[in-house]
Design a protein around this nucleic acid. Structure first.
Length: 205
DNA sequence: GGCCAGGTGTAAA
DNA sequence: TTTACACATGGC
């Protein structure tokens, strides 16, 4: 029953789950928009994040985003919920990125996981989402879908990092260095798509 | 009408 | 360190 990370990867990879997705799965990978999306999607469906993005057209660069007022931002992100806490956290984060790194490109090259974890509103999962999909780092995201899927294979841990290392280490052996960022990015993407689909079809498996 | 969504911060034991 | 709870809209 217990499977390796590679076996789970292959199980998902056979299903062509990313057929309609971008290369890195997350929309507009490598842009500041990923940072905003990582916060907005916390305990929120992506559909509702897209509604907020629709209200933020023209403001999804670091510089433009910093020019938003708090009330203005709250209004725009209302569809994604928790807007009273997400708005100030997003503005503080954008301002800190600008003050610390100057522009998004420098942020992408220089930011560390530790720096992200110091920001209010960012914990393990959001930090890894930003590192993996905005900064192309070799960090794999673990979310509730991931834990749910691994449980189906009889795998359960207590801590976030145990899940993360189980998956990262298992794939590093199989793929080696070089394309690990892409492998991690797509692995997490497949896990999310599998759950979305499984939910729709009552039960796959 | 109730439950859940691509979580996080805080307070209290 | 662990647990409990607030945060909020929208879809089914």
């Amino acid at each position: 029953m217990q499977k390796s990370a590679l076996e789970i990867y292959n199980f998902l990879n056979e299903k062509d789950l990313l057929r309609d997705s971008p290369k890195y799965w997350w929309p507009n990978a490598g842009t500041f928009e990923v940072v905003v999306g990582a916060i907005l999607t916390q305990n929120t469906t992506w559909k509702n994040v897209e509604k907020s993005f629709g209200n933020l057209k023209g403001f999804l660069t670091l510089e433009a985003f910093c020019s938003l007022g708090e009330e203005e931002l709250k209004n725009a992100i209302r569809p994604s919920g928790f807007y009273n806490q997400k708005a100030p956290r997003l503005l503080a984060l954008a301002k800190n990125i600008h003050d610390e790194f100057g522009n998004f490109h420098s942020f992408e090259e220089q930011v560390t996981r530790e720096w992200l974890l110091m920001q209010k509103g960012i914990a393990d999962e959001s930090a890894d989402a930003i590192l993996c999909y905005a900064c192309y780092r070799e960090e794999m995201v673990v979310d509730s879908y991931t834990k749910r899927l691994l449980k189906l294979f009889g795998i359960e841990f207590k801590r976030y990092r145990e899940y993360k290392f189980f998956l990262e280490d298992g794939l590093r052996e199989a793929f080696g260095d070089g394309e690990l960022n892409l492998v991690y990015a797509r692995f997490h993407g497949m896990i999310v798509e599998y759950n979305k689909r499984a939910h729709k079809l009552e039960s796959l498996h």
